[in-house]
Design a protein around this nucleic acid. Structure first.
Ligand SMILES: [Mn+2]
Ligand SMILES: [Mn+2]
Ligand SMILES: [Zn+2]
Ligand SMILES: [Zn+2]
Lengths: 165, 165
DNA sequence: AAACTCTTTGCAAATGAGTTGCATTTATTG
DNA sequence: CAATAAATGCAACTCATTTGCAAAGAGTTT
């Protein structure tokens, strides 16, 4: 990932993409530019809810427009929660690691040959638009913590959470 | 992908995994073994609903146990609908192509160096358990069909579908 | 074969990410 | 500053997937 955020200027980016500079768009973009790791829509909503009002739906719509404008990249995960990262930083394209326990997403270093390898596939079928390389497992933190450490629960009925079988 | 289904014997597979041979498990496994492409939980439910009764939830639970037993592999997509494929066929691990329009998933040929490449990453971080390579775009059929061809809609409010803006 | 015990189902209800229509508020322009 | 197209808030909705619990089954033991 690119260390500084040099050419990732908020206002310039919005202008270049032909998007009006609303407070919400600036807030979302700022959160993404300062993020250490890719963020989920929920992450963004949390980080932005502090300053000014913003609706959940608006976040999704803004993310859609950023993606359409090539400003950000969307990263899918199992479990249906997707993440987003600035395209200007996070270059070149690289694999990501998803922790199946805490459901966090981290960037991995780009393999040297990955670019070429991806290009070969692209040539084989012109229809290819995006490529994603996704590793899954347990992150360091989840590995070191107590083995029986409960997995974050996203779906299911309300009611008392099961504590131990 | 392995052409025949040779060693993918239904009963032997269940036995090897220590799973009792219920009619539902046999049905789901049969659907997966005969599938030409990876199947979603919904696909499986449809193909199995004909013979005998089976519940949607049961399909999910069976798929979870098959996955835990290493019998099948789960393939995530954007849009939250996941697919499943037999691990015995579909070897070695290979990339998949997901059509963002009709939301179908297809297997791609395994790149020669992919295996080695994956191994390198695995060595870099022991926590890695699975690797997925995911291409997105428009499949041949969706490309040839009328450009304005409507995208399959999964979420959203009830009511008249928008016909044209 | 009947009784018993451990699994697996079916059903109903829920969850949560992401969508959409529509009324209201803004950003931008003249 | 008024006019207008675009962006946002809100409420309602979809849908893949998950969970608790009670009923049905499978494999085993009398
Ligand atoms: Mn990244
Ligand atoms: Mn495959
Ligand atoms: Zn973790
Ligand atoms: Zn298609």
């Amino acid at each position: 990932m690119v260390p500084g955020m040099g050419h990732c200027d908020i206002h310039a980016t919005l202008e270049r993409a032909g998007l009006s500079k609303t407070s919400q768009r600036v807030a979302v973009l700022t959160a993404l530019v300062h993020a250490e790791t890719p963020l989920s829509a929920r992450d963004i909503l949390e980080r932005v809810s502090g300053e000014g009002r913003i609706n959940r739906v608006t976040v999704y719509r803004i993310l859609a427009s950023f993606k359409a404008g090539g400003i950000i990249r969307e990263l899918a995960t199992d479990h249906g929660e997707n993440f987003f990262e600035m395209a200007c930083r996070h270059n070149p394209a690289h694999p990501h690691f998803y922790c199946r326990s805490c459901r966090s997403l981290a960037c991995l270093p780009s393999a040297g040959n990955q670019e070429r390898w991806i290009r070969e596939y692209r040539e084989a079928d012109e229809a290819i638009e995006t490529v994603a390389i996704h590793f899954t497992g347990l992150c360091r933190r989840c590995r070191s913590e107590n083995a029986g450490h409960p997995v974050r629960r996203l779906r299911g009925p309300r009611g008392d959470r099961r504590v131990s079988p």
